[in-house]
C-alpha cells in the first residue's frame, strides 16, 4: 500500500536515435522512388504494348527504345533548349512575384486603389491571359523578351490574388493588438500581414511556377525563340518523331518535377 509508486519514465535507450530516424526517412524515400519507378515501368510497357498491338508505324509514334536512343544522342541539344526555356521562365517568375507583391501591398494599404482596380484584376482571371501571346510577340519581338513578358502576365495573377487573400487573413485579434500597441502601418505589414500571408503566397507561387513552363513553351512555339517549345515544333515539322517524343518526355518530366518541388516547398514552409 505505502510502497513507492513507480513513475513511468521513458527508457532513453528505447527512444529513436538519429540513426533510426534517418533509417525511417530513407525507407520513405526508397518507397517513393520505387513507386515512381513502378509507375514509369507500367507507363513504358503500356506505350510499347499499344504500339505493337495497334501496329503503329514508327514514323507516327516511335517506341520507348527509339525515343531513348534519340534522347541519348541529342542530349546536348535537348538540355540546352530546356535551359533556355527555364531561364526565360525563371526571370519572368521573379519579375511577376515582385510586381504582384508590390501591387498587393498597395491594394491592402489603399482602399481607393483596391476598389478601383481589384474588380478589374479579378475580371482578368476569367480571361485566358495566354491568348495575348501573339500580341506580345508582335510588340516585344521574337526573342527571350516575349517569353519573359508572357510568363510575367500569366504568373502575375495567381500570386497577386493569393497574396491579397493572405494579407486579409490576419485575425482581428492580432490586428487589434497591433493597433493598441500603437504599431505603424509598416510594422503591421512586416510583422503581421506578411507572416500570415506566407502560406497563401506560396500557394500562388506553386500555381504560377507550373503554368510558367507551359506559357514559356507556348511563347517559344509562336515566336521561334530557341527553347524546348520550339524544339518540339521543329522536330515535328522535320518528322523527326523520336526527337519530338524525347523533347516531349523531357518537358513533361520537368513539369512534374517543378510541381513536386514547389508542392514540397509549400508543405515544408507552411507546416
Amino acid at each position: 500500500m505505502t510502497g513507492l509508486r513507480q513513475v513511468e519514465t521513458p527508457d532513453w535507450r528505447a527512444l529513436p536515435t538519429r540513426w533510426a530516424e534517418a533509417q525511417v526517412r530513407l525507407a520513405a524515400v526508397r518507397r517513393a522512388v520505387l513507386s515512381v519507378l513502378l509507375g514509369l515501368a507500367i507507363l513504358l510497357s503500356l506505350w510499347a504494348g499499344a504500339l505493337r498491338l495497334f501496329d503503329v508505324p514508327a514514323f507516327i509514334a516511335p517506341g520507348p527504345a527509339a525515343t531513348f536512343a534519340s534522347f541519348a544522342e541529342n542530349r546536348g541539344q535537348l538540355f540546352g533548349a530546356l535551359g533556355h526555356t527555364l531561364t526565360g521562365a525563371g526571370i519572368g517568375l521573379v519579375i511577376a512575384t515582385v510586381l504582384a507583391l508590390m501591387l498587393a501591398t498597395g491594394f491592402t494599404l489603399s482602399r481607393v486603389m483596391s476598389r478601383a482596380l481589384m474588380p478589374l484584376v479579378i475580371g482578368m482571371r476569367t480571361v485566358p491571359v495566354l491568348a495575348v501571346a501573339p500580341l506580345l510577340i508582335l510588340i516585344f519581338g521574337r526573342g527571350q523578351g516575349a517569353t519573359i513578358v508572357t510568363v510575367v502576365i500569366v504568373g502575375f495573377f495567381p500570386i497577386m490574388v493569393n497574396a491579397m487573400r493572405g494579407f486579409r487573413s490576419v485575425p482581428a485579434n492580432v490586428d487589434e493588438l497591433f493597433h493598441v500597441a500603437g504599431a505603424r502601418w509598416w510594422q503591421v505589414l512586416w510583422k503581421a500581414r506578411i507572416p500570415f500571408a506566407l502560406p497563401f503566397i506560396f500557394t500562388g507561387l506553386r500555381t504560377a511556377a507550373t503554368s510558367a513552363l507551359l506559357s514559356a513553351m507556348l511563347a517559344e512555339w509562336l515566336s521561334g525563340s530557341p527553347g524546348i517549345g520550339r524544339l518540339i515544333y521543329d522536330a515535328y515539322s522535320y518528322r523527326d518523331m523520336p526527337l519530338m517524343f524525347a523533347a516531349v518526355a523531357l518537358s513533361m518530366a520537368t513539369a512534374f518535377a517543378l510541381f513536386a518541388a514547389t508542392s514540397r516547398l509549400e508543405r515544408n514552409l507552411t507546416e
Partner: peptide, 12 residues
C-alpha cells in the same frame, strides 16, 4: 501538370 503544348503534337 502536363504541358498542353507538349501533348498536342502527339495528339496530332
Amino acid at each position: 501538370s502536363t504541358p498542353l503544348i507538349a501533348v498536342a503534337p502527339i495528339l496530332v
